[in-house]
Design a protein around this nucleic acid. Sequence first.
DNA 1: AATCTTTTGCAACAATGTTGCTTTTTTAGT
DNA 2: ACTAAAAAAGCAACATTGTTGCAAAAGATT
Lengths: 139, 139
Amino acid sequence: MARDTKDILKKNRLSVTASREKILNLFLDQSGALAHGDIEKRAGEKFDRVTIYRTLQVFVEKGIIHTIPTADNSILYALCKDDCEEGHHHDHHVHFVCRQCQNTYCLDNVVTPDIKLPTGYSAKQIDVVVEGICRQCSI
Amino acid sequence: MARDTKDILKKNRLSVTASREKILNLFLDQSGALAHGDIEKRAGEKFDRVTIYRTLQVFVEKGIIHTIPTADNSILYALCKDDCEEGHHHDHHVHFVCRQCQNTYCLDNVVTPDIKLPTGYSAKQIDVVVEGICRQCSI
DNA sequence: AATCTTTTGCAACAATGTTGCTTTTTTAGT
DNA sequence: ACTAAAAAAGCAACATTGTTGCAAAAGATT
């Protein structure tokens, strides 16, 4: 496990530090997306808020995590799949927000549909966020 | 014009006040969506920030405007069409963010597609935000 | 016009995000 | 393994954004 995080960091030409490993592990140990606040809480009192901000920023730049837009004005972060590279996200999956457990998941198997736009508009990226009840909560 | 705003407010059983008329007019005079900050700037120095927050909140509750989730963590607001009622938004159109002019538009004619979800997931609402170049900017 | 209700503005506060700078840690070269 | 250079962490101070309670002002109702 610790091996993994070191590898991921090195692969992205990032120096290996305690906070980066810790934060990366939070994402690896967790299926859903995390908000900055979640990370602050779960990391214990160990890290400075600024460090978390900067770490998340670096991870996004390197394509290790991506952001998910939400209606309630909080940015969520989730792990990218392997086909994301530095400065070149391939974020073509649908995001799902559960109204019951409030978790947000990347539905990696659900691809964003094509959208027919009016003449004159051209699409570069399409974000789809579905709100509803997740598998866990509908049992 | 002033007539319009009074009518809209009355139709929603809201008392007619200067700030509500002013803010409503900003939306009517403008095709795109507005962030809280935009409103604060365009309204002049006249209104308290708190009043703007509360006014937007009331407008959303009444179904006069709706919110648009954005990737950069700022909530945008835009006018609802007539078929929105109190507590019951019919927000089934696609939102378009222009990378050039940075404006956000409601594409009222473009309906959000159905999304096939994995077993166990059920959708209550689907938000689609398309990023690209708008008609104005692609001339 | 008087009263009751609603809204506004103010002040204080809380949460979130940013910046510059010093100290500490990591990396790379020997 | 040790040292110098580079990078990151931590700290403090600050900026922005959003929230709450309450008194004053404005709007609605009769």
